[in-house]
Amino acid sequence: MKRGIAIATIGAGLLLAAPIASLAQAPAAPTEPGPQTPPMVPPAKPGVFTATKKGPTGYHLVVTGHNFTSREAIEHYLAYRAAILTQEQKSSWFTLTENHAKGDTVPATKPDPAGLRYSFRMAYWRPVWRYKTAGSPAWKTWSPFSGTPFPITDPKSVSDYEASADIVLHKGQMNDADPLAYEAGAVDDWLVNQVSPPT
């Protein structure tokens, strides 16, 4: 049935192809696409982002804040900074190193050489978290590989947080079969209009 619909769709498209192209004529009036100011992510306050060298081409990245907005917003900012750091170091892509621990229930991510290839897959950008709740001096940790749900359900209850990731920088042709590989320029382009440093 699905195949039947697909074929019918192709047929419809082919039928339409010529009339649309030949009849859709219009002068190309100058467009006004709005402000052309290149986007810029505001600089982070000191201490919000740190990158510690780890091995010849590795870095341990940490984003720290007090006002928890959302998991996605903070993790995206960390990914953006990873992309910027990669380009600053004259590399073109980076890989995320997953730090699995004993007892984790989420399996390690494996490359699929025969599968689809990507420039980046945000679904596999999974930093590790630390956080403190109001009134408690102790840090609590959470790993995305633990199999437990993300623990911060009430943003107001969090007084401090850290999201961290270990990355390795690479040059040359990207290994796009690796789901943990990220093309720095593509990640930068996709996130530059979306992220801002945490506070």
């Binding site: 649309i20 192209a21 859709a24 004529q25 219009a26 002068p27 190309a28 009036a29 467009t31 006004e32 696409p33 709005g34 402000p35 052309q36 100011t37 290149p38 986007p39 382009d189 530059v192 209009n193």
Partner: peptide
């Protein structure tokens, strides 16, 4: 119209400022 949308596409990719679709296309 093709040249206009091509120019907008390349401009957007270079500036990372989202572009509108110029008139004349489908």
């Amino acid at each position: 119209a093709f040249l206009a949308i091509k120019a907008n596409t390349i401009n957007g990719a270079e500036t990372r400022v989202p572009q509108l679709v110029p008139p004349g296309t489908t």
